[in-house]
């Protein structure tokens, strides 16, 4: 694919957090050298267990943190580090985020219209209140709510509806990239399906590019065009979903895939889970690096390990 199709590029991103002072000082390497590209119109799935750094990656991209090192390019422009007022506007409007918790991510003292329209007002994309209302109503219909909802407060809505408001807020500035951080994991099963179907439909209507962060592999597989598996701050394997699920190479990916329980009792009772023990990697002699095992399928292993697992 042509390079100019790349919408977001993350190069060797590192995000360390410090805690404590003096002798007790600890450095947590939340994200430790992550690189990936997201092309226009693509849904990029980032999976991993809690604490692996997937949320931190998403947050670093929308500039909630100042990265320790590494570069983030959006539309070919370097956006990590100091930006001019104009570029900052471009980024805040062009990248939007959907959060996991639909309760704490909406301001309880603002009406739905204020919540959704805030971005438009700040970025001065509307002239007056009438235009604002018009735009909010337009977007709120897209997410399956109605016009009479716009003057209500968040507490009047159910979890699923609140997540719809969060999605409408992200969509209203017509962003190029949406970062969806576990958008369905706080919802009930029957509501999850509603939201996933809606995101799928919106993806087509708006031609969205999405960075989809989740821990649920079946959801990520269903939703993404490309999947990267993160472990301990690093991407350990990435591939197209079918390739990754049918032909996993890294031991962690294998363990992760085997751990998903399937709603099929006869199969489920007879099988064993694979456990992953990170101490099997001995990187004292050989250093691990990214290898391309087949077109588009990358694994982070040392050369001898690669030989062992790739069979």
């Amino acid at each position: 694919m042509a390079e100019d199709n790349v919408l977001l590029e993350v190069k060797n991103l590192k995000q360390y957090f410090k805690s404590g002072f003096g002798r007790r000082k600890i450095i947590v390497k939340a994200v430790d050298g992550v690189s990936f590209k997201i092309r226009k119109g693509e849904t990029f799935g980032l999976v991993g267990e809690s604490g692996c750094g997937k949320t931190t990656t998403g947050r670093a991209i929308i500039r909630l943190y100042k990265p320790t090192s590494g570069e983030i390019y959006f539309k070919g422009k370097l956006i990590s580090g100091k930006l001019s007022e104009e570029d900052r506007m471009m980024v805040t409007q062009g990248i939007q985020m959907i959060f996991q918790d639909p309760i704490s991510s909406l301001n309880p003292r603002m009406t739905v219209k204020e919540i959704i329209g805030e971005g438009l007002i700040i970025n001065k994309l509307v002239k007056d209140d009438d235009e604002l209302t018009e735009k909010v109503v337009e977007i709120i219909r897209q997410v399956g709510l109605t016009e009479d909802h716009i003057n209500r407060y968040p507490h009047e809505f159910s979890g699923g509806q609140r997540q719809r408001i969060g999605i409408a807020r992200a969509l209203i500035s017509r962003p190029d990239l949406i970062i969806a951080d576990e958008p369905v994991s706080a919802l009930d099963v029957s509501i999850q399906a509603q939201i996933l179907n809606m995101l799928n439909r919106l993806k087509k209507t708006f031609g969205l590019t999405i960075l989809f962060i989740a821990h649920d592999l079946s959801v990520v597989k269903y939703f993404s065009d490309y999947v990267a598996v993160m472990y301990n701050g690093k991407i350990v394997e990435s591939a197209k979903p079918d390739e990754l699920y049918n032909n996993p190479i890294h031991p962690y990916t294998k363990a992760l895939l085997s751990a998903i329980p399937i709603p099929d009792p006869l199969y489920e009772k007879g099988r064993d889970y694979i456990t992953y023990d990170p101490s099997i990697h001995d990187y004292s002699v050989e250093k691990p690096e990214m290898h391309e095992v087949s077109p588009g399928h990358y694994v982070y292993l040392s050369p001898s390990e690669l030989e062992k697992y790739a069979r």
Binding site: V189, S190, Q192, A193, S218, K221, Y222, F223, Y245, I260
Partner: peptide, 13 residues
């Protein structure tokens, strides 16, 4: 209502 490992991408849930 939940996608499983065999649900095709883009298939309506």
């Amino acid at each position: 209502s939940m996608p499983d490992m065999e649900t095709e991408e883009g298939e309506e849930l």
